[in-house]
Design a protein around this nucleic acid. Structure first.
Lengths: 116, 116
DNA sequence: CGCTTGAATGAATAATTATTCAGACGTTTT
DNA sequence: AAAACGTCTGAATAATTATTCATTCAAGCG
């Protein structure tokens, strides 16, 4: 096959047109970025760890069993995605969830898991 | 600093214990796997394209502007995650959403985006 | 059957990214 | 001021993964 597009070009031209109209490229990229943030076990553990009460970086590292440096790197990403917020108290920095939608996203994902 | 754990070991031992109790390692991994599937623009475009009506592989490729091979690889991943289902009709294979939770996950993600 | 076409697959390449290591910054304490 | 500690950050390394290319499979048609 020399060409990578199918011979009829469009099998169903109308469906293709409708599907194209549904797409909003900006939203697609932003959605992918959010899910990308949630797609790492370490970050899920962090979010889960602080889901009920705030924790300092040091304690988060203890809970998720990783180095403080690794946690700090991940918290930076979570902060940029506005999923966590921080509160400074002396030397310590306490992190907590910034968004109730994180809860809903988790629950929706778990609901999907429970079907098998 | 020679050690990677903070000096007090636990800043708040009780909070750490409670956070630890909340974690279920199996669920964490599975959740990450689902979000990982949703964390790619191409796969989001595919899911979006077939969200209203089924499309054959060829037409999906046309809609998302990628080669048939790339789409086929991605559909394999979406199938493994039970997010899409396929229906064979002659030479063509038609794909559609397998799970209404995908809709909810998208909407929840978009709702998060709208806060800024 | 032989040929064409749509879809699936395996290997190779390129790009993205999580973690580690070393060091810097800011705060507290002596 | 100096030392200690929690946190942050940049560079390097290792691992994961999306895409391309070539090939194979399966179905329809001459």
């Amino acid at each position: 096959m020399s060409n990578n597009i199918c011979q009829i070009y469009y099998v169903d031209e109308e469906r293709v047109a409708r599907a194209r109209a549904r797409m909003h490229e900006g939203t697609v990229i932003e959605l992918a970025d959010i899910f990308k943030v949630l797609a790492e076990p370490t970050r899920i553990r962090i979010l889960h760890a602080i889901s009920e009460e705030e924790l300092c970086v040091c304690d988060i590292a203890a809970v998720v069993n990783a180095t403080q440096s690794a946690i700090s790197h991940q918290l930076r990403i979570l902060r940029a995605a506005r999923l966590v917020k921080s509160r400074k108290d002396g030397k310590m920095v306490y992190y907590s969830l910034d968004d109730e939608h994180v809860h809903n996203l988790f629950e929706e994902g778990i609901r999907h898991l429970e079907e098998s």
